[in-house]
Simulated scan of single mutants.
Amino acid sequence: MTDPVSVSVKRLPHGEGLALPAYATPGSAGMDVLSAEDVTIAPGARYAVATGLALAIPAGYEIQVRPRSGLALKHGITVPNTPGTIDSDYRGELKVILINHGTEPFAIARGDRVAQLVLAPVVQARWSEVTELDATGRGAGGFGSTGGHARLG
């Protein structure tokens, strides 16, 4: 296991009294983040849920915002831009964009766990334009070219 990376967090006024994002178990990859507001999301609607937190993520890292599997399976609540990315130079409030794919309105109470946050290293690319790419066995074969789900059985 690597040493934890320090991430500075500023609690905003509407985040007072809420727990900071935390790992549920020692083996958890994601930290549960809580809602700082009460809101109901209608079926088919999207909403940016306030967390009451602002972050200073170290350079060379991002925080990925991911859905909670239980909310997705049981209620159809997910993060539409999964994974969402919080860049290291962003200093505004962390908000979690949720969408309700379910058939019923979904109520979120202040303090409810709404998503997971995963701290991840970032490697930036440098483009090298060429006239030809190296050949591979797959070549330009794309969507479904390696076999459908029936072949995976």
Rank of each mutant, 00 (worst) to 15 (best):
V49D: 04
G144F: 10
L94Q: 07
L53R: 09
A54S: 15
R113T: 03
V123W: 10
G102A: 02
G141A: 13
T85F: 05
V79T: 14
I99R: 01
L117W: 02
V130M: 08
A24R: 10
A115P: 09
V49C: 06
I86S: 09
A36N: 06
V39C: 02
V96H: 00
S69I: 08
D134M: 12
V79G: 06
A72L: 14
V114E: 05
D112T: 08
D89Y: 06
V118T: 10
L34Y: 06
V33A: 07
P43E: 01
Y23W: 12
I57H: 02
V122I: 15
A24K: 11
L34T: 06
V123Q: 14
K95N: 03
T131S: 13
T136W: 11
T51Q: 04
G27W: 04
P121Q: 09
Q124H: 13
Y47N: 08
P121F: 06
A42G: 03
T25G: 12
N100H: 04
T131R: 14
W127E: 09
A120T: 15
E37H: 03
R91I: 06
A48Q: 11
A115Q: 03
G144E: 11
M31K: 12
Y23V: 10
F143Q: 09
M31I: 00
D87W: 07
T51M: 04
H101Y: 13
L133N: 14
V39N: 01
V39P: 01
L53S: 11
G60M: 08
A29Y: 11
L133I: 13
V123T: 15
R68A: 01
N100E: 05
A135Q: 13
A115S: 10
R46C: 11
L34P: 00
L133G: 13
